[in-house]
Design a protein around this nucleic acid. Structure first.
Lengths: 226, 226
DNA sequence: GCTTTACGGAAACTGAAGTATCGGAACTCA
DNA sequence: TGAGTTCCGATACTTCAGTTTCCGTAAAGC
């Protein structure tokens, strides 16, 4: 079955060249029919609608395709798995921007806390725990999650702490990971671990932000102190 | 098709009496071959082994049955779903007892924090997020979770806070739900949301417990203050 | 002994994820 | 303009795993 020989080698090299040319072309202008951008939006919208209507565990790819008016192939052309599709749909309209300078560490932390509350309380019930399980079941999803959601929130926290140092409220910047965990964790626990009243969440979050601000100010006091 | 009549009525009443007798008998001594207690243990042990070896998402009921040397029917006779089986297996060897009085609020909170760290960090990777998603996908599991894991931890927290009030360290007891969220949340976030270094977890937890103790002491100061 | 339930084993059923294929359309490049 | 490539919706198919059912057998109470 071996067809080796001079002619065969030339053919192999030609194929390699064509392959590289294709790779290069794809960088600038992909060949073939371009993807319809409206399909991406329709998939994400359908997924979000069905998540809200039926819940995370009941969501099926067939239902998303049907609701979006697209074929399943169009979905799997864009997302490797059902979980990746849901992740993209949920992250799509999640805005995680650093809030503007509010003038003090306490006010800045309160604003960051509100961003966290919104990002956790907005998705339909069951979506956040479901996604978290999927993230822990697949290394690729974990990297995606850490690079988008976690990083965006971490940047918010770091920025707010740097502002406080710049203002002279803090002598040195505390560990952002620690502050991040102390803000995000209790809110997550309130919603998804302890099943506490969602109506009392915003009050709890306000208190939490004030507590953390007081704690940081007390331990790494204002610049100029011993 | 109606077979009503005096004789029929007597038969109905007899059936009712038999039914009640059966219900009563079941309370004291169930009829038929009793369940083999070793089967329960074998199922739980096999599930825990396979969770540790293969991970949460890869666990199948067939594998558990095979490893335990039992039939699948024996599993479904005991647990309504695969998720309930895993829940029972994981909760089986989880000890959540209130630590003994350590003499101060700070020391007591540190001990409770260690209990929480153990309960979250001991299960194999992926098990805690997976179970949490299942809990949020089924109301029955949610009630079970709230009544066992959450309640046990909450009782620890409440007891420790009451001790502090009794000692005079705190003027009044803070909301146990709030304190619970502030202890459990950051640890959960450290492990499962932020993917921080597990080696630094115990240090973070110690700091966290001290922070919360200082916070509570500062806001609802010792008895006797205004 | 009769009835009921549990046991392991195995087969059957069911739903859903993911893949393959089809006829047709859109785009690039030669 | 035509060849080659990719996308499109639609549908059938494969595969896998949860759940149910059935079998012959064993252990308990009446």
């Amino acid at each position: 079955m071996r067809l080796a020989g001079p002619g065969r080698n030339v053919g192999y090299i030609t194929l390699r060249i064509c392959w590289f040319r294709n790779r290069l072309a794809r960088m600038t202008q992909p060949v073939g029919r371009p993807r319809d951008g409206r399909v991406d939006g329709a998939i994400a919208a359908a997924a979000r609608e069905l998540l809200a209507e039926q819940g995370y565990a009941q969501l099926t790819v067939d239902a998303v395709a049907s609701r979006a008016g697209v074929g399943k192939a169009a979905i799997y052309r864009r997302h490797a798995t059902k979980q990746a599709m849901i992740f993209a749909a949920v992250m799509h309209d999640l805005e995680l921007e650093t809030p503007p300078d509010a003038g003090s560490l306490a006010a800045d932390l309160a604003a960051v806390t509100r961003v966290i509350v919104t990002s956790l309380a907005t998705p339909p019930p069951g979506v956040v725990p479901g996604l978290l399980a999927d993230v822990h079941a697949d290394g690729g999803m974990a990297a995606m999650f850490a690079g988008t959601f976690v990083k965006a929130e971490r940047d918010c926290v770091t920025e707010v702490l740097d502002r406080a140092v710049g203002r002279g409220e803090l002598a040195c910047r505390p560990d952002p990971a620690r502050v991040h965990a102390m803000l995000l964790g209790p809110i997550f626990a309130w919603l998804f671990l302890l099943f506490e009243d969602r109506a009392r969440l915003s009050g709890f979050a306000e208190t939490l932000a004030a507590d953390v601000a007081r704690l940081l100010a007390a331990e790494t006091g204002p610049a100029g102190r011993p």
